[in-house]
């Protein structure tokens, strides 16, 4: 590694995962700028510890930092409203209305419930891995997922068939 360059392993690791992780961050926080802040912050922490983490499970480290930061950010600094216009959306698609209804309902879930759903159904992680990343018990993951799905059905009854009835 040159003194002024990026570690090639770090660059390859980040390039392979950053888009998917940014999408996860966006789903959890609902804000493009904040999603980039969250991922960028987690990547800086990873870079600072790369020498120690690279031989272990850097992806787990990255997800843990990002999701816990997302939840704690909302707990401590939660904004009451957004004054900037929401990001423009690509037009078209047969189920755009359903997607928008889903997104609006998702925004109204508490942050930890959102994180549980994204980890389980977008990142496709097990309940045990989800619990590890969020630093909670498997029982909490189960109860939060159940509560989140119930809340989604209440907020958007038209999504009932989509969100499942467990």
């Amino acid at each position: 590694m040159r003194s002024t360059g990026v570690d090639s392993d770090f660059a390859a690791f980040v390039e392979a995962r950053q888009h998917r992780l940014l999408r996860s961050a966006y789903l959890v926080c609902g804000d493009h700028h904040l999603a980039e802040d969250l991922l960028q912050g987690a990547l800086v922490k990873l870079a600072l510890r790369w020498g120690r983490v690279r031989e272990g499970d850097p992806e787990a480290f990255l997800r843990t930092v990002m999701y816990r930061d997302a939840v704690s950010w909302w707990r401590r600094f939660r904004r009451e409203r957004l004054i900037d216009a929401p990001p423009e959306r690509a037009a078209g698609g047969d189920d755009v209305p359903g997607r928008l209804v889903f997104e609006a309902a998702l925004r109204r879930l508490p942050p930890r419930q959102r994180a549980v759903l994204v980890l389980r159904y977008f990142d496709d992680l097990t309940e045990a891995r989800t619990a590890e990343i969020l630093g909670v018990t498997v029982g909490t993951v189960k109860s939060q997922a159940s509560a989140a799905l119930r809340k989604l059905r209440e907020l958007a009854p038209e999504l009932g068939e989509m969100a499942g009835r467990e």
Binding site: V6, D7, A11, V14, H19, L39, Q40, L43
Partner: peptide
């Protein structure tokens, strides 16, 4: 995004 260089 392209975050690797800026994060490093």
């Amino acid at each position: 995004p392209a975050f690797a260089a800026s994060a490093w």
